[in-house]
């Protein structure tokens, strides 16, 4: 299925339900190494996008992604809000700039780089970037959706053994090791939901 043929409104509903389902779990992960609000933050953001889903779905995909990003910046707050927001706004802008010829994987790579700049962070810092980088690599090599989903989950899990170098968890130093990063975890959840949607809507 081509990217811009997807039912964005339905995809938004699925993402929101997924975050809702794991809200408490994300909160617990954040309690261990941060301030415990990541579940509540993400839920607030997805609820806001969900409320606007009809308007959003009526836009061309690049504009829709940019709009989602803006809503996330304004509602998630904290560190995760502007980071998720930057990802989607940059992705939307990138796709728009290149018009019909857009290479999704390349645009995503540039959006991820913008997130890293924004967060002054990079690979191995124990953040959502540690999910975004490998997921982008799988997309670039045209992996099947279920492969990408599995990669996202493994990548999130791999943050458990990392030492946090960015965000609140970084103040814990060595004590941050042994806990999965909440942002990586929410990022994997969203990636898995999106992959499953494409898996189900792609003729096998």
């Amino acid at each position: 299925m081509p990217l811009d043929a997807c039912d964005l409104s339905q995809l938004i509903s699925l993402c929101r339900a997924q975050i809702e389902r794991h809200c408490e779990h994300l909160g617990r992960l954040d309690s261990a190494i941060g301030d415990g609000d990541h579940g509540a933050n993400m839920k607030r953001g997805l609820e806001a996008v969900y409320r606007e889903r009809a308007d959003i779905a009526s836009l061309p995909l690049p504009a829709a992604l940019e709009r989602i990003g803006l809503v996330l910046v304004m509602t998630i707050g904290g560190a995760a809000g502007p980071l998720y927001g930057t990802l989607l706004m940059e992705l939307g802008r990138g796709l728009a700039d290149e018009g019909g010829r857009a290479d999704f994987a390349a645009s995503l790579a540039r959006a991820i780089a913008a997130v890293a700049r924004r967060g002054r962070s990079g690979p191995g810092d124990k953040t959502l970037l540690d999910v975004l980088y490998p997921v982008q690599a799988e997309i670039a090599r045209h992996a099947a959706p279920d492969r990408i989903a599995a990669c996202a989950r493994t990548a999130a899990q791999a943050t458990e053994m990392m030492l946090a170098r960015r965000g609140r968890a970084s103040y814990l130093g060595a004590r941050s090791v042994g806990h999965e990063d909440p942002g990586a975890s929410s990022c994997a959840l969203l990636a898995m939901t999106i992959c499953q949607y494409f898996q189900e809507h792609t003729p096998s």
Partner: peptide, 11 residues
């Protein structure tokens, strides 16, 4: 000096 604040103030 908090990530969230830095990111938002930068923006």
């Amino acid at each position: 000096n908090y990530t969230g604040d830095i990111i938002n103030f930068d923006m």
